[in-house]
């Protein structure tokens, strides 16, 4: 119990620190929302009117920073997130985030899970048949793929599957803009087609890491005495491989996976940027470009909370799975 309380206390402290940084960091950036708006409207409009306009939407450059900070903390917890003062001036942040979140969860979430599952299975098999053909080729391939930058893989895939093949797979956006969203085969098929390349990009760059760690865990586990015991008792290979070796080798990877799920929400900013995928990562990029304080604050807050919550859950899971961690606490 003391362990759980300590974890919760740590969670609260980290959250507060992160929220505080979230508030001040954007304000240390060069520029201001007013300047960004002036630039976006081609310096054509009266700066005084624009400042009034931004003030109406909740931008308060002249108010005491301390007061703003307390207001901000309150608003973060009450869900009163305000409206964008960037490129979507006046649109409620909840609405913008609500539109983007499903796309990020769908694309990055599914790709991350798939990469994890595939990587784990490949890693198990490669570790089991250590020194086999699979094990000779795959790890070296995955060392390379896991080191490739996201955006480069993305551009390469666009070149191969979209440009060279004359638009075989769409290279941007979440669905064709002439379609009306709805639960019909045409729309769903279109969404899936649009998800292939960005999803593949995330998959290719993420799967390698899982394969390598899983393979190495597997090899360590296979050297354990209980595996030898299983063999001696004449258990089926398949049974040893999955139920004895893989299950134990899997544990360290699981906590890594919990962490990576936390990062799903922040999207793969570069992937979303390259593919113009309207998810949270793209929103963050746009918000930074336009010095959209409320938008940045909310996005950073969501990212932080997602990571912290998954870390917390991971801690709890470890405590539950592994009695040693409780004893140490």
């Amino acid at each position: 119990m003391r362990y759980v309380l300590r974890r919760l206390g740590f969670f609260a402290l980290t959250l507060w620190a992160a929220l505080t940084i979230n508030f001040f960091l954007p304000r240390f950036m060069p520029g201001s929302p007013l300047q960004a708006l002036r630039a976006r409207t081609y310096n054509k409009l009266s700066p005084a009117a624009l400042e009034e306009m931004l003030t109406s939407f909740g931008y308060k450059p002249h108010e005491n920073v301390g007061v703003q900070y307390l207001d901000y903390l309150g608003h973060m917890f009450t869900g009163n997130w305000g409206v964008s003062i960037g490129s979507a001036l006046g649109q409620p942040i909840t609405q913008i985030v609500g539109q983007a979140l499903p796309w990020t969860l769908g694309l990055v979430g599914v790709a991350t899970v798939l990469a994890f599952v595939a990587g784990t299975v490949i890693g198990v098999v490669a570790g089991w048949r250590r020194g086999g053909t699979l094990d000779a080729i795959l790890p070296s391939v995955f060392v390379v793929t896991s080191a490739l930058p996201y955006f480069w893989v993305g551009l390469l895939l666009i070149l191969v599957f979209s440009v060279w093949t004359g638009g075989w797979l769409p290279s941007d956006f979440n669905y064709d803009s002439n379609l009306q969203p709805g639960f019909n085969p045409e729309f769903i098929g279109n969404v899936l087609r649009h998800a292939v390349l960005p999803g593949l990009t995330i998959f290719i760059t993420a799967v390698g890491g899982w394969v390598l760690t899983m393979r190495n865990n597997m090899i360590t586990t296979l050297a354990e005495d209980y595996i030898r015991m299983g063999r001696a008792k004449g258990l089926a290979n398949r049974k040893i491989m999955y139920q004895y070796a893989a299950r134990n080798a899997f544990l360290p990877n699981l906590s890594g996976f919990a962490m990576s799920l936390g990062f799903v929400i922040s999207g793969a900013i570069l992937v979303e940027y390259v593919f113009n995928y309207p998810g949270l990562g793209y929103l963050l990029y746009n918000a930074v470009q336009n010095t959209d304080y409320p938008m940045m604050q909310v996005l950073f807050m969501l990212f932080t909370v997602a990571v912290l919550v998954s870390v917390l859950l991971c801690d709890f899971a470890t405590a539950w799975l592994d009695p040693r961690s409780r004893a140490k606490g």
Partner: peptide, 17 residues
């Protein structure tokens, strides 16, 4: 290219929209 999805607000006085 507008760089963002449409906010679906049509206030003619809103300089962003």
């Amino acid at each position: 290219t507008t760089g963002q999805t449409w906010p679906c607000q049509f206030n003619p006085f809103n300089p962003a929209q």
